[in-house]
Write a protein that binds this DNA or RNA. Sequence first.
RNA 1: GGCGACGUAGCCAAGUGGUUAAGGCAGGGGUCUGCAAAACCCCGAUCACCGGUUCGAAUCCGGUCGUCGCCUCCA
Length: 464
Amino acid sequence: MPLKLRNTLSGQYEEFVPIGDVVKLYVCGVTPWEVSHVGHAMSYIVFDVLRRYLEYRGYRVRHVQNFTDIEDKIIARAERLGIDIGQLTEEMIERYHQEMRALNILPAHVYPRATEETPTMIEMIQALIEKGYAYQANGDVYYRVTRKEDYGKLSHRPLDAMVAGARVEPGEQKENPVDFALWKAAKPGEPSWESPWGPGRPGWHIECSAMSLRYLGEQIDIHGGGEDLIFPHHENEIAQTEAYTEKPPFVRYWLHNAWVKAGEEKMSKSLGNFVPISEALERWPVDAIRLWVLISPYRTPLSYSEEALAAAQRGAERLRLAARASPDPSASLRAGGAGEGEAVDAAPYRQQFIEAMDDDLNTAKALAALFDLAHEIHRARDETRPIGEAQTVLLELADVLGLTLAEPEADMSAAPFIELLIAIRDELRQAKQFELADRVRSGLAELGIALEDTPQGTEWRRRE
RNA sequence: GGCGACGUAGCCAAGUGGUUAAGGCAGGGGUCUGCAAAACCCCGAUCACCGGUUCGAAUCCGGUCGUCGCCUCCA
């Protein structure tokens, strides 16, 4: 079964066939003017799962992700804070990396920044001017959209419809309202870079074309980002790059994730209705956040809510308990050898998982396979049948989704005290002093320690 | 106005022509337990509405209602 991906360009599900040995993956990164929110988390979790799955299927992946570290809002915010733009973006980028690590997102291989890639951009812009695809106007450089007839092929809009809706900012001297800026002349006091057209800064779209070209080459396999980037950003990237290289297609597979809704509307930085990743991480375990994202397919809008996250947290715990080592160390079921009767055969579940993921990363269906496997493990454990191999498979598949199924970070310094309390509680129980014994249990519960009495003795674990 | 997505049990959500409509959360009953917890067993929807195509539709077509998004910075 081949992997099929839904390509925004064709609107079809297409079999994934990479150009070369290494899959070239470019994912649009953030503009670091403000902290990232759970909408960004969703997008980067989705593309992390894409990457993990490609690697699971045996592909090597080269993943490039940019930072748009020069942009109007960055300039405005830095000015308001009275700091240098570099100081602002550096801080935001550092936070971004920390949060991605916390979300168990694999780092990209390269994180180019717009401000460090201006030579490539200038080179591209110059070539576009020479080829007649771009023109200067008062220190600005614009891309001549009407020059190529296939403009609009990604967003599936006819050019004339766009002309009708396009606006021109005061001071811009465009030949045509739909033309977009490749280079913007510096306004007084703005950060700027030298160029053949005078001091200025790059337009938004050219950076991705330049970085993609420099770090991945003229044609790449997959380009990803949020659905809101389809137009104009990605449409413009295609126009520029294909005009420059004359080697279409620039990107073979365009993948776009839907967005996170806050209530009924889209969550976005501009609207100010966002939940920062840091806040979500304080409230919920990583596995819960990832499960919340992956329980629905990446092209379906997702709602952030207390209830949804709580449900995901409980679900994650269910998987975690299935993967957890056996409570009885002497049985050591986890080792795979012990136990009697028929071992759980995890192969069919792995198969279902792969089939689901092959279907345009249907993580909802893939998770159903994980839950089914977890159920089999629990049942077999009740019957003391061997579950070790099945648990290994469960962890293997969970890892493809970036779920760790790990116990919550334990502060082991408390362990001796907890165990002492458990020993005392056991004595109380044996003496039928249940009221006191229950006080120990409920007291620990309030501190986040759950006790479970099993035939092998009392176990404890942290509740997340 | 142009383009697009969506509407499945209390909630999240899979399913794109044909066995009993996945899975998770919540809820009810039961097993286990001193009581719990965890786990296990059992229990729930005819798929927004109307009409059509078909032997057969949640799945295809048309219409209605509703929600959301893009067309301007945005994952």
